[in-house]
Design a protein around this nucleic acid. Structure first.
Length: 343
DNA sequence: AAATCGTGGTC
DNA sequence: TGACCAAGATT
């Protein structure tokens, strides 16, 4: 099939199929920017729950730029990759300062924003701005690899470069870059999925290399999962006068900037007396409450939960005593949410 | 440039 | 059930 016909086949397929992201029917650069930040490495279904509340609270770059970072993180709670939320706020600040509050639609300007890489810039520019630029996400890379029967390791430099080259050729040959790019991603998400290629309904089936050779299941080869390091978090629910002691995590590492109950991290499991000694506040008593494991992409955290009573007049520098309603305003990880449920 | 950063879904 | 994956970016 000639490349222009391929591109139009995808555009027509997308135009005829319902979109899973209805907010894109309103073409707003700001909405597109927020949407693309949320969608980085995150499934559409998860984003749908969070998007409208976030946009209602932060309807334009100025409102986000002026907001307290704690509130931004709270609106992001549960989405993961919390650095995106902080980058998005910094991007909003830059939009206000350098672009007069108007979200840019040119790829080069978008790339200057923190947290915006080649994919995100291309998605906003092509979908919200209808600029003729390519995008390659995990879906597009898989569809293109199968189309061209490219069985290389998808994490290799060369394979990535070939995907961008092929995406560029397609978008150069298409009529509507927005429909082409969204169509390629939807194809990957709904038709040409990792586990199954539903070639019977695929607009690219004619001329697909993997289909011709029957290698849909082995292209692309799977990426090796990261080795998970095992660590232990000992978290203490410290009570005093009906309040709970909370601390904020540092600027780097996992859950940066989020809040937690006092937690001792170690390579090995610790007993109650060790936890009591190292948790940073004097306790008169400590008991085990329960434990669970929390899985991250590159780490397995064994969470051991304790309950302790603060000694009278105990000091806890850098920490705050929170009431139940105060707790609800602090951004916490899902692991901490589970810990708090045990309290 | 390999590691890091969350969480939930799929098969 | 445990890999593997998701509208990736950063260092």
């Amino acid at each position: 099939m000639e490349i222009g016909n391929r591109a139009r086949a995808v555009e027509d397929w997308f135009a005829a199929n319902r979109r899973r992201l209805p907010w894109r029917t309103r073409r707003s650069a700001w909405r597109s920017l927020v949407s693309e930040f949320m969608l980085q490495q995150t499934q559409v279904a998860r984003v749908v729950e969070k998007f409208e509340p976030f946009l209602t609270r932060f309807p334009d770059p100025a409102s986000l730029a002026a907001a307290d970072e704690q509130e931004v993180l709270a609106m992001w709670q549960g989405l993961g990759y919390y650095r995106r939320a902080r980058n998005l706020k910094r991007a909003a600040e830059m939009i206000v300062e350098r672009f007069g509050g108007r979200t840019p639609l040119e790829p080069d300007e978008l790339l200057e924003l923190p947290g915006v890489g080649r994919y995100t810039a291309g998605a906003i520019a092509s979908i919200a701005g209808r600029r003729r630029v390519p995008i390659v996400d995990g879906n597009v890379q898989r569809v293109l690899a199968r189309l061209h029967e490219d069985d290389a390791d998808p994490t290799s430099r060369d394979a990535i470069a070939r995907a961008w080259q092929r995406a560029t050729e397609l978008v150069d040959a298409c009529d509507r870059p927005d429909r082409l790019n969204e169509g390629m991603m939807e194809l990957g998400a709904l038709v040409c999925t990792p586990g199954m290629a539903d070639c019977g309904v695929c607009p690219l089936a004619t001329g697909c290399g993997a289909r011709r050779s029957g290698r849909q299941a082995s292209i692309p080869p799977p990426k090796r999962a990261a080795v998970k390091i095992e660590v232990h978090h000992h978290s203490v629910l410290v009570r005093r006068n009906g309040r709970l002691l909370m601390e904020q995590r540092g600027d780097d590492g996992i859950w940066a900037g989020l809040w937690q109950v006092p937690t001792v991290e170690s390579k090995r499991k610790l007993g109650p007396s060790q936890v009591s000694r190292r948790c940073g506040v004097e306790l008169t008593e400590i008991d085990r409450v329960g434990s669970f494991t929390h899985e991250l992409s590159h780490r397995r955290i064994h969470v051991h939960v304790f309950r302790g009573d603060a000694a009278p007049g105990a000091r806890a520098p850098g920490r705050t005593w929170q009431t139940r309603s105060g707790l609800e305003r602090l951004p916490v990880s899902n692991a901490v949410r589970r810990i708090l449920e045990l309290g």
